[in-house]
Amino acid sequence: MDRKVVIPGDLLSEEAKRSGEGTFVKDGKVYSLLYGLANCRDRINVIPLAGKYVPAPGDNVIGVVKDITFSNWIIDINSPYDGLLHISEFPKRIDADEMSKYLSLGSSTMIRVKDVDSTMKVELTLNDRKLGLLKTGRIIEINHTRVPRLIGKGGSMISMLKKELNCNIFVGQNGRIWINGGAEDMDLALKTILLIEKEAHTSGLTDRIVDFLKKEKGAGN
């Protein structure tokens, strides 16, 4: 396996063009920016082990309404930066004085990051059939650095989970996950997702999760 634990300032390569995510270039050499795992392929990426979610345009996340102002909802997206959802980004035309009827304080929603500017003003949108208010189910929070592992290569892990767990699952890039299904199915889903978070850095994880689910289901019957 071409993975290696690195700390900030570690020399990764002499070729500047191999610099990927989590690295920086100084004097034509590539160094690690973070404490994490270096993946050395054509490009060298360092995957962090911790850190805060920074919104990027196109990310689907789960947000919680924090405040309502004139024509904007202020939405907590589990990040140092709050998101703004303008009234015009709501799928339906609504009046400013009726905003809390549709999205009230404390309600959760699947939402997309529309744009982030250089001062980190985060604009959100609900204009997609895939997005919408979350009224049932549960939301759990994991570290956002573990999200790629929960989704798996080409969605292998998440599609397996959806099938095996009998649950509807939405994974937000910010580490918030919505699960919806029968109460027992959700209990198992919660357990499984927390296990994936804990073991995110190990190899052959999908296979082990399949085994874990088989065992759990066997015990239940």
């Binding site: 700390i7 900030p8 300032g9 160094y31 920016l33 962090p48 911790a50």
Partner: peptide, 11 residues
Amino acid sequence: LADAGIPMKSM
């Protein structure tokens, strides 16, 4: 700082 995942030039 490294443990918190803060990007740094070095330790």
